[in-house]
């Protein structure tokens, strides 16, 4: 424990925590984007009493059940939430302390300043990070707690998304925020490997590329959802439900007919 304490004393140790919590949150984002893309999948049968439902609603329900029956219901979900909450708190505390240390390290600014290597995404980490913090709060209030109303129904993910992204303001807000995530990660994903002492001249190109691919990939994946709704590629929920149920019934009829024949 005293070693962890002494690690935390130094800026290198705090950066280590920033990097590790960054990895945890990136892992979450990758899972999150994969889940979101389920809006493009055809509806699935939610089982007795539920019937056909959008794939993403089914998935949202499944998230509550991960780990059952070994763990009590929603235990895994809450575990994951706590790990994420802990990560973001540690991440933010450490970056605030690091920034405080750095601003104390130069009290007089240069009259003239030219950067030759420091990229804007790297220089903006504190701005993009703080914007991210705000985004996370608004996003949770909006699509987890339904605090902004607008016909929000718990568990009806597809319906809620459809509702939200009919409003161009929400689309702009989400696309902008995801752009900020991408900027944060464009520097962050590479930086974490350097912080952990993993980068070297052999790996540098690969890691730099990975950061670019991951940040752009996450951007494209996340933006696909609001785009699909505002452009009408993703259909209205009732439209899906009724037409797909009809299709489903047709399939069943076809099977029955085949069997008869």
């Amino acid at each position: 424990m005293s070693r962890l304490a002494s690690l935390y004393q130094s800026s290198l140790g705090k950066k280590f925590i920033v990097a590790v919590t960054g990895i945890v949150m990136i892992g979450f984002l990758v899972g999150h984007v994969a889940g979101n893309l389920k809006i493009f999948l055809p509806p699935v049968d939610g089982g007795p009493g539920v019937g056909m439902q959008p794939d993403i609603d089914y998935y949202a329900h499944y998230l509550r059940e991960i780990g059952e029956p070994l763990l009590p219901a929603t235990a895994f979900l809450w575990g994951a939430r706590l790990v994420l909450l802990g990560s973001i708190i540690l991440h933010v505390i450490c970056v605030i302390q690091l920034s405080t240390q750095s601003s104390a390290a130069r009290k007089t600014a240069y009259a003239s300043r030219k950067y030759s290597r420091a990229t804007p995404p790297a220089r903006w980490m504190m701005y993009t990070g703080s914007a991210l913090m705000l985004f996370i709060v608004v996003h949770l209030l909006h699509l987890t707690f339904g605090a902004f109303g607008g016909g929000f129904e718990h568990g009806k993910v597809y319906h809620n998304l459809y509702d939200a992204f009919n409003n161009v303001l929400w689309v702009v807000f989400y696309v902008g925020s995801i752009g900020i995530v991408a900027l944060h990660l464009y520097h962050g994903v590479w930086s974490l490997f350097q912080t952990l002492g993993f980068d070297n001249p052999d790996r540098n190109r690969g890691l730099r590329r990975m950061a670019a691919v991951l940040s752009v990939g996450l951007f494209v994946g996340f933006v696909a959802v609001p785009t699909a709704f505002i452009t009408g590629i993703a259909k209205a929920p009732d439209h899906i439900e009724s037409s797909e149920i009809a299709a489903h019934q047709q399939d069943e009829n076809a099977v029955e007919n085949e069997e008869k024949e």
Partner: peptide
């Protein structure tokens, strides 16, 4: 200060 891997 602390290193933010700017490379500057």
């Amino acid at each position: 200060g602390s290193c933010r891997n700017y490379g500057e």
